[in-house]
Amino acid sequence: MELVNEILQTVLSGISIGCVYGLVALGFVLIFKATEVINFAQGELLMLGAFISYSLITMLNFPYWTALLVTVIFMGFFGTLLERTVLRSLVGEPVYAIVIVTIGISFFLRSVVSMVPGWGTDTYGFQTPFTEKFVRTGELVVSWEYLAIVLITTALILVLFAFFRFTRVGTAMRATSQNQLAAVYMGISVTRVFSLTWTIAAALGGIGGILLSPITFVHMNMGFIGLKAFPAAVLGGFGSLPGAIVGGLIIGITESLAGFYLPEGWKDIAAWIILIGVLVIRPQGLFGIQEKKKV
């Protein structure tokens, strides 16, 4: 019984961290589907979101939920700004050039954050409504911090699903991701779709930042979580939104179990071993569709 509890605990914490991976992966996939660009700065967007919410909560004494809302709005705005100032002029240029630009952005953001007064290179934490609160069922003790991540992520996914399925803009975005030329012919403004994609991706990064903060704390290198979300996105098939979440969960759970039951060192590479194994068998990821060029 104790063993079952232990496993359950480990899996649950894996699920919650997996949700954060999934959110970051979702950002990757959204941008990739719209523009074929891998956004190397996605992790840094998460970091920026975390720092902003930290400042709002500890320096300006915002309540948690208000801070969350403000951060999301700010990050969404930041994403739009980024697209307008930098990425828009690169539409139609080779994809790898844009990827390198996102790498440049990630260097820049990480360093600039370290230069902002009050942020710097230290590690910070902040109080949330879930801090030190637990749910007990029998022997099982679950921290609300973990539970909150799962619940908020689930809610977010439902909202996104509804957005893509039932709104005009969402449909336009789906159409654009399938065939840009056809979308243009249908009168969809591809530029606006791109802009909106960056907005949503940055906002998702912001939420990820707030959710992750209580677990890993806030610091300038927390953006490296993006490197874990990568395999998550690829595992899911890099083009499938549910795939990103499932990939995130698989990576999170694997990592959690490997950290608990395997010798030191396995935690960091378990996810990669699984990923490479999956790719050798299914080159297109779990949910991806194998595309064969027509000749």
């Binding site: 844009i98 440049g104 952005i105 820049f108 990480r110 360093s111 600039v112 230069m115 290179t121």
Partner: peptide
Amino acid sequence: QTGLEPALFGLLIVLVML
């Protein structure tokens, strides 16, 4: 600031590619 060089470096990468 220790972050100065990487920040400028990142910025220059962006500018060169633009």
